[in-house]
Write a protein that binds this DNA or RNA. Structure first.
Length: 341
DNA sequence: CGATGTTTAGAGTGTC
DNA sequence: GACACTCTAAACATCG
């Protein structure tokens, strides 16, 4: 690992996994779903590191999209021709990351298979490695289980991959099902008071998830709208209240470079946590970029820390919004970041 | 044909 | 040490 030399921090590998990066991209999108190409674009815009070796990481990213149940594929509308499907986050993957942190998942998100269990009972199948997940003999792809435990279960899978269900129908069925989700644990739901981990994507990309997640995780209205179906009034109000700020941080050119900002365009402030939190004072990235020093290896760990800091009495949500308005690209664009219901 | 999506495999690393 | 997760690579299929 040669010292980067003139390369800036931005050229170093971000401490986020591909899953995290993908989730960020998806969550950042106004409709909470993106085609693969836009996911690529998002990552490359925000993280210069990924402007190189595209074949390598894009392959990995595609692997993650397919392999991880936390990502669901939504077929394109017939009037939206193009390659590939849209990708969204599974609504139940909210608690997948410890404390809402996107540095490392606390567990692999795996949807339950009502009709077939995984052979051997190993839900994670021992990971991608040793032994491997094993080939599922059932014709249904893993996304079939998107509807697990949601009554009444649509018999069809979401994915357009599955014969017998046209893409948009599947997506609508999915959306409808998602809208009925009995419960959804949003990021950080285990936290007592809406605390958001500094590495939570909300803090990283400066977006609001509240309405979306409260609507059931996957933005039902968004999906419905995307598919050309009328959006229920209740949800459309959510949509309009949640996404007036589309385009926040859409330009990498807007990445701040002042000392107040870290390598990935996130504000660098003193980190503090609400008293009730059990979080470590300083979260450590999964794996720091090789050339990073201890001090520089965690550039983003202070993301929005000052916003979260309880020394300011208002809710983290308002603080985040306030801070967002301090950022060059986030002026007045951040809303409440509280996901917690 | 290139982009996209799926699957398998192995190595590295962190956690319990 | 076992297990879980991530990363990388590769082969192959499908689709526009």
């Amino acid at each position: 690992m040669p010292r980067p030399g003139k390369s800036s921090y931005s050229d170093q590998k971000p401490p986020y996994s591909y899953i995290s990066l993908t989730a960020m991209a998806i969550q950042h999108s106004p409709e909470k779903m993106l085609p693969l190409s836009d996911i690529y674009k998002f990552i490359m815009e925000r993280f210069p590191y990924y402007r190189e070796h595209t074949q390598r990481w894009q392959n990995s990213l595609r692997h993650n999209l397919s392999f991880n149940d936390c990502f669901i594929k939504i077929p394109r509308r017939p009037d939206q021709p193009g390659k590939g499907s849209f990708w969204a986050l599974h609504p139940d993957c909210g608690d997948m990351f410890e404390n809402g942190s996107f540095l490392r998942r606390r567990k692999r998100f795996k949807v339950l298979r009502p009709e077939h269990h995984l052979p051997g009972g190993g839900e994670a199948g021992g990971g991608a490695g040793g032994g491997g997940p094993g080939k599922t003999p059932a014709p249904a792809p893993h996304m079939v289980h998107y509807f697990h435990s949601h009554p009444p279960p649509p018999p069809q899978p979401l994915s357009g991959k599955v014969p017998g269900l046209v893409g948009s129908e599947a997506a609508v069925a999915a959306a409808a099902s998602v809208g009925r989700l009995p419960q959804f644990s949003p990021y950080g739901s285990s936290q007592p008071s809406g605390f958001k981990h500094p590495f939570a994507i909300e803090n990283i990309i400066g977006r609001d998830y509240k309405g979306v997640l409260q609507a059931g995780g996957l933005p039902l209205a968004s999906v419905m709208h995307h598919l050309g179906y009328p959006v229920p009034g209740q949800l459309s109000s959510v949509v309009s209240s949640v996404w007036p700020h589309v385009g926040v941080m859409d330009s990498v050119a807007g990445v701040p470079v002042s000392p107040d900002y870290g390598p990935f365009g996130v504000p660098v402030k003193a980190l503090c946590h609400p008293p009730a939190q059990t979080m470590p004072a300083v979260p450590v990235p999964i794996k720091a970029a090789p050339a990073m020093t201890a001090a520089s290896a965690i550039p983003a760990l202070t993301v929005a820390a000052s916003q979260i800091c309880p020394t300011a009495t208002p809710s983290a949500a308002s603080l985040l919004g306030q801070t967002a308005s301090n950022t060059p690209e986030g002026k007045g664009s951040l809303h409440s970041v509280l996901v917690h219901s």
